[in-house]
């Protein structure tokens, strides 16, 4: 752990991403403990109030303004991050595990399993992801669990494709042959010799996917298929606020900014994490 922090402090971008991510996650986790206005209760006398610093610490202040029914935007952002982060990270991890395992299986075993899995990927790639997501959510009904499933479903193919390609070249490497020569089982070869060598690409795909999934989740909410009102979510806020873009810029700017910052922090931190896990770059100081 000390090594982790020491190494992290050496990378300015990595540290920035990490700190930003910690702040975002901490805000999300601590949201119920913060003294914020109720994110679901509107105040029609204060609808579409602009951001203001006046009376910042007085109750009833809206530092980032209010939306069209007078709900506090700051509070909705922080409460909304809980849902967005939980949905996105669960989907990415779920898709990542499934995609990586299937990618290794397809690449290492080859033959029928490989053909089956890759044709499945091809079929899914032929269907626009958004359409697929809409179909599934429409069929299963909009619930948080279904949104997670749909996002994971759109995510696993990217891992599977990239991991499989990596495994195809790893499989022919001599250390894999050497593992077979000592009589190591297939499971041992796949998890001890292949898996650690594909974690780097999996991690890179993961950070890209997290960014994509946050945006896709926002899009689903935007279309009314994600998190249901009145529960706040960033995509929902964008969707509801876009009508007022010309008159009340703060309704969309702040949720948009929140998405940008989250995606940025994940990418910066993920970039550093990739180097950290590579023994080659780790010791090259």
């Amino acid at each position: 752990m000390t090594h982790f922090l020491k190494d992290l402090s050496r990378s300015r971008a990595g540290l920035f991403g990490f700190v930003l991510l910690v702040v975002i996650v901490a805000l999300a986790l601590l949201a119920p403990l913060l003294d914020l206005p109720d994110p679901t209760r509107g105040d029609l006398r204060a609808r579409l109030a602009g951001p203001t610093w006046q009376g910042l610490f007085s109750p009833g202040a809206h530092p980032l303004g209010t939306d069209e029914v007078g709900r506090d935007i700051l509070s909705r952002l922080i409460h909304g991050s809980r849902m967005t982060l939980m949905v996105a990270s669960t989907a990415v991890v779920l898709g990542g595990i499934v995609g990586t395992v299937l990618g290794i299986l397809a690449g290492y075993k080859g033959g029928f399993i490989d053909r089956l899995l890759m044709r499945l990927v091809d079929i899914q790639l032929a269907i626009p992801l958004m359409l697929l997501a809409l179909l599934v959510v429409a069929a299963l009904g909009p619930s948080i669990r279904n949104v997670v499933l749909v996002l994971a479903l759109t995510s696993w193919i990217r891992y599977a494709r990239i991991i499989r390609a990596q495994v195809l070249s790893l499989r022919e490497r001599e250390f894999v042959q050497s593992a077979r020569a000592i009589g190591a089982s297939t499971a041992r070869i796949m998890f001890l010799h292949i898996l650690p060598n594909v974690l780097t690409p999996a991690l890179v795909v993961g950070t890209l996917e997290l960014a994509r999934v946050i945006i896709m989740d926002a899009a689903l909410s935007f279309l009314g298929l994600g998190v249901q009102p009145p529960t706040p979510s960033w995509g929902r806020m964008l969707a509801d606020g876009r009508v007022y873009l010309s008159s009340a810029w703060w309704t969309v700017t702040f949720p948009g900014l929140a998405i940008v910052l989250t995606v940025l922090s994940v990418n910066l931190f993920g970039d550093w994490l990739r180097d950290y896990f590579d023994p080659k770059t780790r010791s090259a100081k």
Binding site: E174, F175, H193, K280
Partner: peptide
């Protein structure tokens, strides 16, 4: 078996 290429014969991780 001992392999030809000592670079790819070791698991880098």
């Amino acid at each position: 078996m001992i392999f030809q290429d000592p670079y790819s014969a070791l698991n880098p991780r």
